[in-house]
């Protein structure tokens, strides 16, 4: 009897201690590169070395004073915005079709739309670079253009939007949609005026996720951009290969801040929608 009690008492305590130790380990593991980068971005020295002896905002000034880096940031934001628009529009329309219409070969089409998400970036980038390398549209080289990078990034972003929106459309109360039809609105008007407002949180979230994916991606962009259109992550990768300076840490922080700003927008929107619902 006492043996059983001892075992039942001992093991949970040990498991609890193990669990606590594991949580400390995993939180440290995840936060180490984040904190190291944040600390290093305020370093005054030109070298990456610990301990840090002097602090300053020198590298932030340096970042914003350098046209090469601000241009890369601008390029990143333009490409990410384009990706968000392309993948949100195409993903939402496809999800709507899957939810509300009879589609032949549904499973095959589903797999086809999702497939690029599972392909390595290096394969997608290489394929597009080879296929569209020499193609010109109206005298402008497609290769090296921002449009091509936007579409390449959409190969990853669009399936995600599609998946998210398919789940969102499933929560819609379609009696309201039918009512709109009955009152004489055509399908397009119904979609824009009735359905889209009902799923606005899903739309905003998927657009911002698409934006974030494009903002962070750099392997496809490495294959598809040239000096004038290169994105911030590409420039970071190329300069890491030559020499690491605290400027890279600043670039990392700025990239991360942009992403967290997007996340904040999603959360604010979500809270606003919740309030609206509870008020009604």
């Amino acid at each position: 009897m006492s043996d059983v009690l001892a075992r039942r008492g001992f093991e949970p305590v040990m498991l609890k201690a193990l669990g606590a130790a594991f949580i400390v380990f995993i939180v440290a593991y995840i936060l180490i590169p984040v904190l190291v980068t944040l600390v290093m971005s305020f370093n005054d020295a030109a070298m990456i070395r610990f301990p840090i002896n002097a602090w300053s905002l020198k590298w932030y000034q340096d970042f914003f004073a350098s046209p090469q880096w601000t241009d890369a940031l601008k390029s990143s934001v333009i490409i990410a915005t384009g990706t968000a628009i392309i993948s949100t529009v195409s993903g939402i329309l496809a999800a709507w079709a899957f939810e509300r219409f009879p589609i032949p070969f549904k499973n095959a089409l589903y797999l086809l739309i999702m497939l690029p998400l599972f392909m390595p970036g290096v394969v997608l980038g290489l394929g597009i670079a080879m296929t569209f390398g020499g193609v010109q549209i109206a005298g402008v080289n497609l290769y090296g253009s921002r449009a091509l990078v936007m579409i390449a990034h959409s190969l990853w972003a669009m399936p995600l939007v599609f998946m998210l929106m398919e789940a969102t459309f499933r929560t819609v109360d379609y009696r309201v949609v039918e009512a709109s039809y009955d009152l004489g609105a055509n399908p397009l008007r119904t979609f824009i005026e009735i359905v889209v407002p009902m799923v606005s949180t899903g739309v905003i979230s998927s657009a911002l996720f698409a934006f974030v994916i494009s903002l962070n991606e750099f392997v496809m962009a490495l294959f598809l951009t040239d000096r004038d259109t290169q994105t911030l992550p590409v420039l970071m990768w190329l300069s890491l290969r030559s020499a690491g300076t605290p400027r890279l840490a600043v670039a990392s922080v700025i990239l991360a801040l942009t992403v967290f700003a997007c996340l904040a927008i999603i959360m604010v929107w979500y809270v606003r929608q919740l309030r609206k619902v509870s008020r009604n």
Partner: peptide, 22 residues
């Protein structure tokens, strides 16, 4: 966190952690 941070920023973070002066 790791989902939202660019792979290049993660690489750079570890790149400052592991070396001799890291």
């Amino acid at each position: 966190c790791p989902l939202l941070i660019s792979e290049i920023a993660i690489i750079f973070g570890w790149w400052m952690f592991f070396p001799k002066n890291g």
